[in-house]
Design a protein around this nucleic acid. Structure first.
Lengths: 197, 197
DNA sequence: CGCGCGATTGAGTAATTTCAAATCTAGTGG
DNA sequence: CCACTAGATTTGAAATTACTCAATCGCGCG
């Protein structure tokens, strides 16, 4: 069966068998169980990860030891602490498995080699980077424009999957509000929405 | 004298005279006076802009007609409504001059042609896209982690220029708080900071 | 001098947070 | 099947914080 990596890339640029083989050489795959850390704050960042299956959280811990979630990464997402990965500096973020997870791993060297040798792949990564940038701007806009309640409703509408897959406390850390507030918003929805009681 | 565009690009990738000439062909320059609109909500987005001099605001207007500032663009920044520029859809954002401004303009066609013909330039844009993505994640993190007061102090420390160049009301729309609140934060700083009265 | 605009101030209101306690749920062992 | 525990979720009440709305201030310009 076609490897997930190939399908993923060819969704953007077509590759010959030879080209794909060259690309694949630079990846390794890894399985990690729920709770495992792929990136730990303070340590070097070896890889950028492409999620094959499972769910990750990219987090930042502030001075008061509160955990904030920069993003969730699920199937087909690329994730890492980019500033640390690019620069070689120790990570300021952590990346942790919320579910059992399988990922492709790519080093910075591998990334650079692939881009240098295959313009198509540089094009692919440009495409992905642009997407990522736009998604981030969207999230910024949501912080500027929407109230916490509206942000919650947005997730409810656009990513109902998250409600199933992540504990509410994590969702709160992603939306930027306290678990208590999230719980109260959730309640008002249950009744208003017309669920059976 | 060296055109700003060439210096800007060669800060990332070196170009031969011939290569630069090819690239430059696809840009036009434009001057716009304070208050002019480069992108108007609802209209098509022809260009991505590289700011040569001046200052722009990229804004979103919500249902209650309140203006939110996604970002300020100053010298050496690339800015546009990316989703609209890439897709051809009408803009959901607006881009307006806060000061008299001079920009390079590049169409999507020009961008694609340049990338296709010169791998170096695809590399350049990949570099820029990665930077942009990281900057956005940083801003997201600030919304998650910092209180409005801390966000204000961050700008104070890291981009004091903005305080000089931008009216306070705009800064508030950028930080995601009301002008009144910003004014009060500003006050408490004046006294605490030990400025002459 | 008076107008106009940006910035500030004051007072009351709405929303969220915090801290503490109560409740619920799934898994474990008897 | 029931009791029990750990973790997640919910609830309550007080305290913070930011918002809104309205009024005032300060300054540059005609």
């Amino acid at each position: 069966m076609e490897p997930m990596l190939r399908r993923h890339i060819e969704h953007v640029v077509p590759l010959s068998d030879e080209e794909y083989a060259f690309v694949e050489k630079h990846f390794i795959t890894r399985k990690a169980t729920k709770g495992a850390m792929l990136i730990t704050k303070g340590e070097p960042v070896r890889y950028v990860y492409l999620v094959i299956a499972g769910l990750l959280k990219l987090t930042y811990e502030d001075k008061k030891e509160r955990e904030h979630i920069v993003s969730f990464a699920m199937e087909d997402w690329w994730e890492t602490d980019y500033p640390a990965w690019f620069s070689g500096d120790p990570a300021s973020l952590s990346l942790k498995c919320i579910e059992d997870t399988q990922v492709y791993c790519l080093t910075l060297d591998g990334y650079q080699t692939i881009c240098q040798q295959l313009q198509k792949m540089e094009h692919f990564f440009l495409h992905k980077a642009n997407r990522g940038h736009m998604a981030s701007q969207d999230r910024i806009l949501s912080f500027l424009t929407d109230t916490p309640r509206e942000r919650y409703e947005l997730v409810l509408r656009k990513q109902p999957v998250l409600l199933q897959r992540v504990p509410k406390a994590l969702l709160a850390a992603y939306l930027g509000l306290s678990r208590e507030t999230l719980s109260r918003l959730y309640r008002s929805h249950r009744s208003a929405g017309g669920g059976k009681m």
